[in-house]
Design a protein around this nucleic acid. Sequence first.
RNA 1: CGGGACGUAGCGCAGCUUGGUAGCGCGCCUCGUUCGGGACGAGGAGGUCGGAGGUUCAAAUCCUCUCGUCCCGACCA
Length: 476
Amino acid sequence: MAEAVEKLTKKSEDPSRWYLDLVRMAKMADYGPVRGTFAIRPYGFAIWERIQRDLDDRFKATGHVNAYFPLLIPESYLQKEASHVEGFAPECAWVTVGGDKELEERLAIRPTSESIICDFYRNWIQSYRDLPLLINQWSNVLRWEMVTRPFLRTAEFLWQEGHTVHATAEEARAETLRMLEVYRECFYEKLAIPVLTGVKSPSERFKGAIETFTCEGLMGDGRALQAGTSHDLGQNFAKAFDITFLDENQDRVYPYQTSWGFSTRTIGALILVHGDDRGLRLPPKLAPTEAVIVPIWRGKNKADVRREAEKLYIELQTAGRRMEVDLDEEHSPGWKFNEHELRGVPVRVEIGPKDIEKGKAVLIRRDTGEKEFVPRDGLAARLEELLEEIQANMLRQATEFRDANTRHAASYDEFKEIIENERGFVVAPWDGTEETEQKIKDDTKATIRLLPFEREEGKDLVSGRPGKTAVFARAY
RNA sequence: CGGGACGUAGCGCAGCUUGGUAGCGCGCCUCGUUCGGGACGAGGAGGUCGGAGGUUCAAAUCCUCUCGUCCCGACCA
């Protein structure tokens, strides 16, 4: 055997290098010619398509429809909401020339679409009968990031951004929380990532919002990742863009808005949460291929084994499974085992001469490596069951990891010690001031990831003033 | 944008100190033997050494600028 097989860096040794290796070796993404831009390869995109489909179904189920808005945003639009422009202008890419002529007003390539969408909403909304307006857009956006890495922070990324308008503040807040819940369910049910949900501290709030809610995941290396946010915009944008409507009492009033987004960053979260030293581990519900059949043949019986593998493929595919059969004749079975493990296929089905003789096949699960011999006639049913088990087990493992890495700090020394040596989430009281938040950040690089919905009273570790629990972590 | 490291074949790297015919492993192509945990043999293709200037008879190697990547800080989905 050749000793120089392309080797994946160990996650335990160098998570950062491991991640980049894995993205490349599993053929998920490649660097583009412009800094921070990446091509998402078909395999990575297939995962994104499955996430898209799931979210889209949930959006439709909650009454939303899809639409599309322009890529280019005049600078003056961006400037209408003061904190919004302050937050986003520094990281915009600008178009200054069109058709070889200098433009009179430069155009931002959307970093997010609130401003351009509000410009349309001004005309779309005249009466309370036009509300609520529940629209979602699937699009790409561009942010000129200093430091980038595939999926986790790319200059250009794909996402969905929901933009809704409501007659009352209560309704807007309910929408904001409903969509946070939609994200949370997607994380738990499909991505098998047990995110924490809660409120962002004011300093971490979306620029232009009155409140930001977030889903925070804990990655395999103990760092947190913000993945999915939902913003209550209040009347900030409505006032800035002069969106008004006539209510039942014939008063002209400003509506209340929300926006919420979920991006391809989530693919990075999937990799970091579930991946191991052998490669990716995909939750069955998101895996483009649920199970791959690897035929094991020798020269003399190749035709027979091949025929059985093909039959098995048809059988399982017909039973509703997303299957792949690896009929490649160049690579050895061992090579294929490693390759499909690297790609994270949840189950491998082996079929060889001995199995055919016994009327069985071998199922190997990617999450635990466990192997079982299953009679052919019960195979489809067992596979379906196994996939459910894997999905549940991956969520369980991730939850155990999250809980084992969520610690309560009783003193600031302990807090610092945990952040430095253990990482993970640290739960501690916070007095609600920006100074203590900033001091903790300066001292430890940890930020407030969220304020839980249920908060306990306590004493702030830094100031000693009364506070309520916050969840801290170093984040991506 | 600050501090550090690095750009040489698709991928991983050596060569640079001390200038002188561009190398290695994997991958790729061809043929044969293999195939239950990354098989083996033989042959072959592939590079304006990130880019631009400069020094020199001669630059992957020395100098300047520039672009890009990675790690650490400030910002973010």
